[in-house]
Amino acid sequence: MQQPASSRPLVGVALVVGSCASLPFGAAVAAQLFPKLGPWGVTSLRVAIAALLLLVIVRPRPRSWSRQQWIAAVLFGVSLAAMNGFFYAAIDRIPLGPAVAIEFLGPLVLAAVLTRRLADAVWVGIALVGMALLGVDGMVGAEPLDPLGIVFILIAAGFWAMYIRMSARVGALIPGTSGLSIGLVVAAVLLLPVGVPTSLVVAGEPDLLVLAAITAVLSSVIPYTFELAALRRLPQRVFGILLSLEPAFATLAGWLVLGQDATVLRMLAVGLVIAASVGTTLGVRRDRRPDGPFTAPIPLPD
């Protein structure tokens, strides 16, 4: 039974929230593998496992794809490989909460560029204040931010913006989750040079494979599937601002799993981030058109 159009925005919001909750807890589990596998090794293993899982579940048939569909899937895979690799390289050096906050500059800038309403711009501004407070907390608190870690997370931020654009493109061009599964295969192939040494380590310690599988499900399969589905229901600017929930979940995951402190300043920042997300959610219904629930994703030039 087809879902009523009026309910699709709320489903999209729920999918983004689910993604924001899943991904940082997967990152917290991944951080425990860094001492033995390294951040890029963990990235390669996680992406490879996620690609295998989706290939088995989805069973894509890309032989009939057009040139446009293949280009979208390949660029999607490039964004996945780079975004995840540089993110893990960053959280190997700086705490999870501030890292996600700084990385959020990617989707935040994208949301600001795509916004068409004054209210959207106000919520972007509030989220930006929250990001700034998290950054200040990371610099003046007990855990100063490593400069190289900041460089890595800023690179990841750029690829996160690219991921949002390409995810929307793949969702518009390729039905179902076939585009996601092929994108993950592309990412796994690109990460193969760092993945081969990792596989040798895992072969000697199979218990590491269990943690890697948990990371793959929490950090790849669940969030990417949810986000791809959400981008079919939400405009990219709304999707980008809703992702501001992620630093809040990252702070929680860092505290619960990794024992990283949640300071008063950090919690204040998280409150501002949540306020921006709530404000965006309340304004979602006003974006509906007479012929459908939302503005279609803006395509990239061919």
Rank of each mutant, 00 (worst) to 15 (best):
F104V: 07
I241A: 11
V196Q: 10
T225H: 01
G183K: 07
A276M: 05
A156I: 01
V217K: 08
R169W: 10
G12T: 01
V29D: 06
V109H: 05
F76I: 08
R233A: 03
L96A: 07
V17L: 15
Q3V: 15
I174N: 00
L218E: 07
S19C: 10
R8C: 05
A203P: 08
V210A: 15
V270A: 08
L184F: 13
D146T: 02
G158L: 12
E246G: 01
G85P: 08
I222W: 13
L55H: 05
G41E: 06
L134I: 13
F294E: 11
D92P: 00
E103D: 11
V278S: 08
Q236K: 07
D287A: 12
W70S: 04
V270Y: 06
V221K: 01
V58F: 04
R289E: 13
A172R: 10
D92R: 06
A14K: 01
T281R: 00
L33I: 04
L234F: 14
L37F: 09
L200M: 15
R59E: 04
M267I: 15
E103Q: 15
A157H: 03
R233I: 04
G12A: 01
I298G: 05
A253I: 02
D120H: 12
A5P: 00
R232C: 08
P147Q: 02
A51Y: 01
L228A: 03
G259P: 00
A156D: 07
E205A: 15
I49S: 00
P197G: 14
V210N: 03
L173R: 02
R116F: 11
Q3N: 11
I155L: 12
G141W: 13
T263S: 15
Y88F: 15
L265P: 04
A275F: 05
D291P: 12
V273M: 15
R232A: 05
D302V: 13
V122H: 12
G179H: 10
L191I: 06
P107Y: 09
T295I: 13
V185H: 01
P60Q: 00
L192F: 13
R232K: 15
L114H: 04
V13A: 09
S22H: 11
V109F: 08
D291A: 14
A21C: 12
V186G: 07
L231V: 15
P95Q: 10
V16I: 14
A50W: 02
L128Q: 08
L242G: 00
D287T: 13
A250R: 03
W40N: 10
A250G: 02
P235K: 07
V217L: 12
L200G: 06
A99I: 04
A72Y: 14
L173A: 10
Q260H: 04
W40Q: 11
V136W: 14
A119D: 06
L105K: 10
R237L: 11
L231D: 01
L218K: 06
A101S: 08
R46V: 09
I155W: 05
A14L: 14
I150G: 02
T115W: 13
A121C: 09
L208Q: 13
A213R: 10
G240T: 09
Q32H: 12
V42T: 02
V186D: 02
T177E: 08
M162C: 13
G77C: 12
E205D: 14
V124E: 03
R233N: 04
D302I: 10
T263I: 10
L53D: 08
S167R: 08
G271H: 01
A30W: 07
M139V: 10
L118F: 15
R61S: 12
